[in-house]
Computed example of a mutant assay.
Amino acid sequence: MHVAVVGGGVAGAASAIALSRIGAQVTLYEAHEDPAGPVGSFVSLSVNGLRALEALGCLEEVQRAGFPVDRQRMWSGRDRPLGDVPRGRRPGDPLRSVTLMRADLVGALRREAERAGARIVVGRRLSGDPRDPLTGDADLVVGADGIWSATRRALDPACPEPRYAGLYSVSGVTDRPVRPPGDRPQGFNMVFARRGAFIYLPAPGGSLWWSAQVAAPVPPPDLSAVGPAELAELFRTEKTPLAVLRASSAVTAATLLHVLPPVTRRHDGRTVLVGDAAHPVGAGQGASMAIEDAVALARELASARTVPAALAGFDRLRHDRAGKLAKSAAANRDAKTAGPMAARLREIMMPFFFNRFHPKATGWLYDHDPGRLPEVRSS
C-alpha cells in the first residue's frame, strides 16, 4: 500500500512512523524545509500521548529531548494557590508528563519516520486535492496539514473555516536563571491573570519557559511587535508574570489561537484527516491526540479488509473521544477569557473543588490505552 501523508508536523510525522511500521510505503510531503523551525513554543505530552509514542517505538527518544514535569499548579493573579495536581496523569501513574520544544518533538519524530522507512519530501506544497500529481498514485492520502488544512477543503469544499478564538499566545524563555516570587516549587504553573493566562515552568539550566495567552476580542494588528515589554504592560498587575517577563528580552513564538466548528466530513474512501486537520482540540492535548490518531489509524488499516472500511472504523473510534476533549478545551478557553467577576468567583471556589474533582474529571483522558501496532506485514 502506497500512502501519501500531507503535512510534516507532529501529526504527519507520527502517521508516517505508524503506517511504515505496518508495512506501508509512506511518502511524507512537507511544504517547508523545516516544519518546526529553529525556534518556537514548547509543547507538553501527557501520559496518553506518551503511551502512543511507546506504541510507535520512540518514547525514550522524545523523553530524552525534553524533561519530566511532575506537578501542575494553578494560581490566581494575586498569587493565591487555586490547585495542585499531577501534571497530565492520574495520581500514582509511573509515567510523567514531558515538556519539550515543538521543534525537538517534530525532529525526533521525523528521524524515527526515516528510520522506519518513510520517504520525506520537503519544500513541496500540495493542494490537498486527490488529483494532485504528487499524490495521484497513492492508495491512501492522510491529511495531517493542521487547522488550515488544504486536504480538508479538498475533501469538503463546504467545510467550516477556523475563526479567531479571542486569544493570542506569545512564548519565550528567560535570558537568565530566575526564581519566581515566593520561591515556588518546580512544575507547570498557570496564573489566571486579568488579561488572560500566564504559563511558566522551570527548565533544565535554571531558565523559565513561559507562554502568555492574552485575551483580546480583536487581535493585535501586528503580532510580531508584541514582545516582553508589551506583555509586561498587559500583565503589570500580576507580580509573578511581570517578574518573568522582565527577565526576558525576546519571544520565540507568537500565534493567534483559532477554533474550528466540528468537521462533519473527515474521510472518504481514500482520504482521511488526522490531528488538527480533523479536530483541533487545544487544552494542551493537540500533540498527544495527533499521536493517538496515528496509532489508531495504523491499527485499523492493519486489521480491516479494505481502506474504506479502515477509514470508517478509524473515524468511529476517534470521533467521540475527540469531541469530548473539544468540549473540555472550550471550557478551558472560556476560563482564560472570563471577566473580573468570574475571576473572583474562581478564586473563592476553585481551591475547594479543583484538587478533589480533577482526577475523576480527567481520568477518561489519561487512562486511554492506544494498543500496540501489529508486526510488520508485506504491503
Results as ranks from 00 to 15, higher is better:
Glu33Thr: 09
Ala329Gly: 04
Asp84Ile: 12
Leu155Arg: 09
Met289Asn: 04
Ala138Arg: 04
Ala329Lys: 08
Gln186Phe: 13
Leu19Lys: 03
Asp34Asn: 09
Phe314Arg: 08
Pro220Lys: 06
Met190Ile: 15
Tyr168His: 05
Gly166Lys: 04
Ala287Leu: 11
Pro370Ile: 14
Arg119Ala: 03
Arg176Met: 09
Ser224Gly: 14
Ser127Asn: 12
Ala65Met: 06
Arg194His: 12
Ala290Leu: 14
Ala203Leu: 05
Arg96Thr: 04
Val121His: 14
Leu297Ile: 03
Ala290Cys: 10
Gly88Arg: 04
Glu375Phe: 00
Val226Asp: 01
Leu257Lys: 13
Gly371Trp: 04
Tyr164Phe: 15
Glu300Phe: 06
Pro280Gly: 03
Arg194Asn: 03
Ala296Tyr: 06
Ala283Arg: 11
Ala103Tyr: 10
Thr99Leu: 03
Pro162Leu: 13
Arg194Val: 14
Leu109Tyr: 05
Val173Cys: 12
Leu260Pro: 00
Leu82Thr: 03
Arg115Lys: 14
Ala203Trp: 01
Gly83Val: 00
Ala342Tyr: 10
His358Val: 00
Ala254Gly: 05
Thr151Phe: 12
Ala342Phe: 08
Leu50Cys: 06
Val178Cys: 13
Pro130Val: 02
Phe192Met: 08
Ala4Leu: 09
Ala14Cys: 09
Pro340His: 09
Lys324Tyr: 08
Val307Glu: 00
Ser328Lys: 12
Arg51Thr: 02
Pro185Glu: 10
Pro91Thr: 03
Gly323Thr: 08
Leu167Trp: 04
Gly107Thr: 10
Ala65Trp: 06
Arg372Gln: 15
Thr264Cys: 00
Val98Ser: 11
Ile291Pro: 03
Thr237Val: 15
Met341Thr: 02
Leu155Gly: 12
Arg184Trp: 15
Ala103Ile: 07
Arg179Thr: 06
Pro340Lys: 05
Gln285Pro: 08
Asp315Pro: 06
Leu109Ile: 00
Pro202Leu: 12
Gly196Lys: 00
Leu105Tyr: 10
Pro202Ala: 13
Val226Cys: 07
Glu300Pro: 05
Glu33Tyr: 11
Gly269His: 02
Val85Met: 03
Arg195Tyr: 10
Pro157Ser: 10
Ala329Asp: 04
Pro185Arg: 09
Arg333Trp: 02
Val173Phe: 02
Gln186Trp: 07
Ser41Cys: 05
Ala335Ile: 01
Phe235Gln: 01
Tyr164Ser: 07
Ala278Phe: 15
Gly371Tyr: 09
Val214Leu: 15
Leu273His: 01
Ala331Gly: 13
Ala197Lys: 01
Phe357Arg: 15
Arg372Glu: 15
Leu208Trp: 07
Asp276Pro: 06
Ala212Glu: 06
Asp79His: 02
Gly9Asn: 09
